[in-house]
Amino acid sequence: MYLVTFRLAPGEYDTEFHQLNDAIQATAEDTEGYLGKQTWHAPDSEEVLVVYYWESLDALESFGADADHKRAKQRWTEWYDAYEVTVTEVVETYESGFGDDASPLV
């Protein structure tokens, strides 16, 4: 499994951003191997952290080839003040106590 952590400092979102963001999320959900996402908002700043869960690197690369996703990456300066993407391969997971719907992995 792979995690893509998208850390962002939001800027100004316009209608086009929201339309593109919705299209990208729909594409992710339709991509075989997409497992889900979780979002956190920093309590002391505007920073947002979104973690996407992927079954394989092939699934992630398939999503990355999407035209809307590529277009959004080229236009990031219009909507974000800063961003960082980290791709991580998961070697092991274990959990206790978060409940049935706490993680896309459950």
Rank of each mutant, 00 (worst) to 15 (best):
V51M: 13
P43D: 05
Q74N: 12
K37C: 03
D30H: 06
A42V: 02
H69M: 10
H69R: 13
T31H: 08
R71L: 13
L35C: 13
K37I: 01
S45R: 02
K37W: 01
S62P: 04
L35P: 00
E32H: 11
L60Y: 12
A42F: 05
K37R: 15
L57R: 15
E46V: 08
S45N: 04
W76S: 14
E47R: 14
A42E: 11
H41E: 06
A67K: 12
S62F: 07
K70M: 02
S56T: 15
K70L: 13
D81E: 11
L60K: 00
W76H: 10
T27N: 03
E55R: 15
L60P: 01
A65Y: 05
S45C: 04
L35Q: 03
T31W: 07
S62N: 09
E61D: 09
A42S: 15
T77Q: 13
H69A: 03
S45A: 10
E78D: 12
W79Y: 14
D44H: 10
S56H: 11
E61I: 07
L57I: 10
E78P: 00
R75D: 09
L57Q: 15
Y34E: 00
L35G: 03
L49H: 06
P43E: 10
Y52A: 07
G64H: 07
L60S: 00
T39K: 15
G64P: 04
E32Q: 12
Q38S: 09
S56F: 07
L60E: 00
D68C: 02
V48A: 05
W54L: 08
K73D: 05
W54P: 02
Q38H: 08
Y53P: 01
V50M: 08
F63Y: 04
E55I: 06
A67E: 15
Y52K: 05
E29Q: 12
D66M: 05
V50I: 14
Y80T: 10
D68V: 08
V50T: 15
V50C: 03
S45K: 05
E29P: 00
S62Q: 12
A28Q: 06
E78W: 04
A67M: 02
R75N: 13
G33N: 07
E29D: 03
W76Q: 11
K73A: 12
T77I: 05
L60H: 02
A28P: 00
W76Y: 10
Q74S: 13
R75L: 14
H69W: 10
Y34K: 08
W54F: 07
T31F: 12
D30M: 11
E61M: 11
Y52T: 01
V51P: 00
D68M: 09
V48K: 15
P43Q: 09
D81V: 11
V50L: 05
R75M: 10
Q38K: 15
Y53W: 12
K70C: 08
L35E: 06
T31K: 06
E78A: 07
A65T: 10
A72E: 02
K73V: 11
H69C: 04
T77M: 03
A67P: 07
P43Y: 03
L60I: 00
S62G: 07
T39S: 11
S56L: 07
S56D: 08
W79H: 04
L49F: 07
Y53Q: 04
E32Y: 07
E78I: 05
Y80F: 15
V50F: 01
W79L: 06
W40V: 09
T31E: 06
A65I: 08
Y80H: 09
A67S: 12
W40H: 13
